[in-house]
Design a protein around this nucleic acid. Structure first.
Length: 318
DNA sequence: GCCCAGGCCATTT
DNA sequence: AAATGGCATGGG
């Protein structure tokens, strides 16, 4: 077990973990517990310090990076948010999201874990995706314990966390077993894709060398992976910061904020716009717009009446 | 019961 | 090429 403290002044841990890019971190004490790959970790933000406590596997410890390296890499503390934000468009919608999401980082997730959870994400609310992720971990992953050494770490008692199951482990399960994790029709896709990996027909690490377009096409060829999921995996696991996933939230933001009242707008037109407008860090723009929109929706009570509500509000003020 | 959800896919126009 | 409907499940 190791303890490390990392200066991270422009990093919002809680917002990053609650922004719908990763689904397994759970609050514990004043921080969060989860797994970074095979490493069980407790993390907390204490003023400008990111404090992490956890263990690295004993096998091949010599080749193993330090906990500090693992945490810094995972949370992308090397990303210069100042430069990234400066490169984003400066329209009112983007500015508001940018301001609201200060400190939110696009993290670097393990590739299979990211691919698998986003295969499970289709037509699911984030709370459901979290449930699915937890069930997969509890049922097929490995239990690892975190034993806090001192009350300095405000995480309380010993905690068990579960690693995400390998593709081989999922492939060795069954569609019925996956169904019991509330996967629904997604079970078949997850199983099929896991078997491509277990059978050596697909090596996710090898794909990292491919150009964006080719990587996107390769991912889209996998069962249960379409344009949206492929872009999520590119953004959250392959560090392709241009990737701009368009889900129902983002599509709503684009239609209402960037093309208000425009009728003939298919997904292809929206895609053409986002790729040229948001630029090299479009993925950050997308995540900020997504999180801001999702957090703002709670205020208007009813989701369906949200649009009408906003409209009538602006009219009544006029 | 209704609505919707970080969509994908086969089928039809 | 673009629109449409089915798909499993759970929360509000």
């Amino acid at each position: 077990m190791w303890l490390t403290e990392i200066p991270a002044p422009d990093f919002d841990l809680a917002m990053t973990l609650d922004s719908g890019q990763v689904f397994h971190w759970e609050t514990a004490g004043k921080g969060f517990v989860g797994a970074i790959g095979d490493c069980p970790v407790y993390v907390e933000k204490d003023r400008n310090i990111l404090r992490a406590f956890g263990s690295v596997l004993k096998l091949d410890r010599l080749k193993r990076p330090s906990l500090r390296k693992i945490v810094s890499q995972y949370f992308a503390l090397d990303h210069s948010l100042a430069e990234i934000c400066a490169s984003l468009p400066r329209d009112p919608v983007m500015n508001a999201a940018k301001h609201f999401c200060r400190g939110l980082r696009i993290i670097r997730q393990p590739k299979w874990e990211c691919l698998a959870t986003f295969i499970c994400s289709s037509m699911k609310q984030i709370a459901h995706i979290r449930q699915i992720s937890r069930k997969l971990r509890e049922r097929f992953g490995q239990a690892r314990k975190i034993n806090p050494p001192s009350p300095r770490l405000r995480c309380g008692e010993a905690i068990t966390v579960f690693t995400f199951p390998s593709a081989e482990r999922i492939a060795a399960s069954s569609e019925k077993a996956l169904h019991r994790c509330a996967l629904g029709y997604r079970a078949k896709n997850l199983l099929a894709t896991s078997r491509l990996i277990a059978n050596r027909d697909l090596d996710l690490e090898q794909l990292a060398r491919m150009a964006d377009v080719d990587l996107h096409a390769k991912l889209c060829a996998l069962p249960g992976v379409g344009a949206k999921v492929a872009n999520c995996v590119m953004l959250f696991a392959y560090e392709r910061l241009r990737a701009f996933p368009i889900d129902v939230w983002i599509e709503r933001v684009l239609r209402e904020q960037y093309f208000p009242g425009k009728r003939k707008l298919n997904v292809g037109r929206l895609r053409a716009f986002t790729e040229e407008y948001f630029g090299d860090h479009g993925g950050y723009a997308q995540q900020y717009l997504f999180h801001h929109a999702r957090m703002s929706m709670g205020r208007s009570k009813s989701k369906v009446s949200g649009r009408r509500g906003a409209e009538s509000l602006s009219r009544s003020r006029a």
